[in-house]
Nucleic acid binder design. Structure first.
Lengths: 159, 159
DNA sequence: ACAACTTCGTTCGAATTTGAACAACGGGAG
DNA sequence: CTCCCGTTGTTCAAATTCGAACGAAGTTGT
């Protein structure tokens, strides 16, 4: 009766870390979602699309590239870009180097929107997460979760 | 031109922590979702419902209480409990002390399901998160995110 | 006891998400 | 140049999520 075929269950500390991660993630997403919706009429996902575009050279990105940055499905991105297009915040144009390609780009209105939405969002992220942690905790979190993300990406993208 | 009305933007370390958190969370959820669906036919949310029930005294919990543990909406829980009921994994009975109350309880089939689904799930959580981090990183994560969660809960539940 | 307020779980409609299937295109081996 | 295979973005149906509104039942203060 050893642990031959028994899985290695999580001990108390491991469980605390895992639960903390899941719970914090859910609670945080909920709050940010509410704040963004009330404050700017954007979902968190839509906000993130604008952010990634505004951080890209020329405020534009290929759909697939954008989907990878967002960690979302391609079909989900198609849907959301269409929404943002209807709101006039994002435009679509075709890719010069690849006929199949579609490039999403920020409109002037989109740039203005992110300029107005960002302060409130960042303030809340700060209040709820960043300023709650010490500098050391932040560093550990960044390095640890960075490594976790990197490995997960390697798994998903064999090449 | 000071920072009077300028928000305090995230510096490089803070941004790394925040992005790491968001990205790791999304990637992790995706992987766990896939694994559970393929392995047991459950969504992550459904799995979590079973876990919380099986951890509760009598394998049963009030709907509201369960919703809080899961960090989900009440209507979302209603939906999922109905799904699990159709699968024969969970049952509903009324609460003795409150006519309005509904108690969700694990069925024998539900207990059997969680028994079979848990090992694969835990193994993946271990592989993707727990075993990637050092003991110290885990401790920091648990404490830091525990505090973040606690504050968020206090916000949501004024009383 | 009564009114006012809160809580409980569900229902409803709308928005979102996903994977599979698809058509069209790129790109390299032969 | 072709054939073959991977990629690209979209469409589609199905599943899930949420908040608001609801009826019904507790709870509190007077």
């Amino acid at each position: 009766m050893s642990s031959l075929n028994e899985p290695r269950w999580l001990d108390q500390d491991e469980m605390a870390a895992w639960r903390g991660f899941v719970v914090a993630s859910n609670l945080l997403n909920r709050r940010l979602e509410r704040q963004l919706k009330e404050d700017s009429g954007l979902s968190h996902q839509q906000y993130e699309i604008l952010v990634h575009l505004s951080a890209a050279p020329g405020d534009a990105l290929r759909m697939t590239e954008l989907a990878e940055k967002l960690v979302t499905s391609k079909s989900g991105l198609t849907y959301q870009v269409t929404q943002l297009e209807r709101m006039g915040l994002v435009g679509r144009r075709s890719c010069p180097s690849d006929v199949r390609g579609v490039i999403a780009e920020l409109t002037d209105q989109g740039r203005e929107m992110i300029r107005r939405a960002a302060p409130g969002h960042v303030a809340l992220v700060r209040e709820l997460l960043i300023d709650v942690l010490t500098r050391e905790q932040l560093a550990v979190l960044a390095e640890g979760l960075g490594e976790v993300s990197a490995r997960l990406r390697r798994d998903e993208t064999p090449q």
